[in-house]
Amino acid sequence: MRHGVTRAAGLVAVVLLGATAGQAEEAQHPWVVPSPRAGKETYFSNLGSGARIETPFLLKFGLSGMGLAPITRPQARTGHHHLLINRELPLDFSKPLPFNEQYVHFGKGQMETVLTLAPGDYELRLVLADDKHIPNFVYSKPMRITVTKKNADVDPASVSQPGVELMLPVAEAAAGKPLQLQFHASRLNVSHIALQEKGTGHFRLSALRDGAKPETLDFPGGQTEAWIKPPPGRYQLKLEFVDNLAPAKVLAAAAPQEVTVLPK
């Protein structure tokens, strides 16, 4: 009987430990708030419809309301990007996306690609899908662009360098209004930390304000965007990309940026 009780207690401890880890994983800094925009979506963060570009061109991906993860195994609230070139959205969202030159997969958790398209008109879309490449109803609006020239003398590999970037759509926010933060990683793979995948990382943000203790906002769910409501003040924000297997190890850091939250 004693062995049965001991074993049961051990199982309860394991269950409680798992629950605690899950709660910690989902815990968010009190500044983080839901996006004011309805729904989840993917988007192109550095190019808009109607643009005229030369290739090679570095195209960056954004994601709202979910996180990124490689295709190693299922992970809730995550997916990976797919670039559709001159293709409509799939008619059947229960089937995996095909593999060909018009459906480009980014199953490692990448946030960008280098376009090498020939001159002409193109329609581009982003679609997020799960580890089985099945779309999960998260996609972008179609973007129509024109490639005016392909520079054969430019090595596509030279267009992107490893690093991270913090993009602030505004440098000044009104009190009580959420501030959007967009994160980008070049030649680095983003993943939910729970997968514990070698060669991946996640974003971490430090916020410094005169007269206040530093704040650290961690995004272990593979998030590449956040909305925050910090108290009024002038802040220096520093974005880092940390190793998922060793979170104390910083793989890349962006130059600090300043943002002001106005008083009421």
Rank of each mutant, 00 (worst) to 15 (best):
W31G: 15
R2C: 09
W227M: 12
Q196Y: 07
G211Q: 15
Q180M: 07
L83I: 13
Y139H: 01
L205H: 09
E240D: 05
H133I: 04
T113C: 06
E112Y: 14
A226N: 05
P30I: 11
H192W: 05
A118L: 02
D210S: 12
P256V: 02
K249T: 07
V104P: 00
F219I: 02
L17K: 00
G120H: 07
G65P: 09
H81A: 13
V154E: 07
E112H: 15
G79I: 07
E240G: 00
F241K: 04
G211A: 12
T260F: 08
A19S: 08
P34C: 06
I134K: 06
F61H: 15
Q28R: 12
G39A: 10
T78C: 15
R77L: 08
V127F: 06
L97R: 09
Y43F: 14
T55C: 11
S191I: 01
A254I: 10
L208R: 04
G221R: 15
D121C: 10
R7H: 13
T224H: 02
E101K: 08
M1H: 05
A129W: 00
A252L: 10
P169T: 03
A157W: 00
T116K: 03
S160P: 07
L181T: 11
H133N: 04
K95G: 03
P142C: 02
A194H: 09
L237F: 02
S158R: 07
G67C: 12
Y139I: 03
A8G: 06
M167C: 01
V170D: 03
E225W: 05
Y235C: 06
L124A: 10
G18T: 10
I134M: 05
E172R: 08
K149Y: 06
Q161P: 00
T6R: 10
H81C: 14
L262S: 14
E101T: 07
V33P: 06
F93D: 09
A27K: 03
R187Y: 03
N189M: 01
V250H: 01
A51K: 10
V147S: 04
G201F: 11
P230A: 14
L63A: 15
A255L: 14
G120Q: 10
P90R: 11
Q257I: 07
Y139N: 02
R144D: 02
G79S: 04
E101W: 09
K229D: 07
T216N: 05
A171M: 07
G107W: 04
S160C: 02
K141W: 05
S94G: 09
A76E: 02
V127W: 09
K108P: 01
K95L: 15
V104W: 07
G233N: 07
Q223M: 11
V114M: 00
A69T: 11
A173N: 07
H184A: 12
L262V: 13
A175Q: 11
Q182V: 08
V159L: 01
A171P: 05
V114F: 04
H184C: 00
T42V: 12
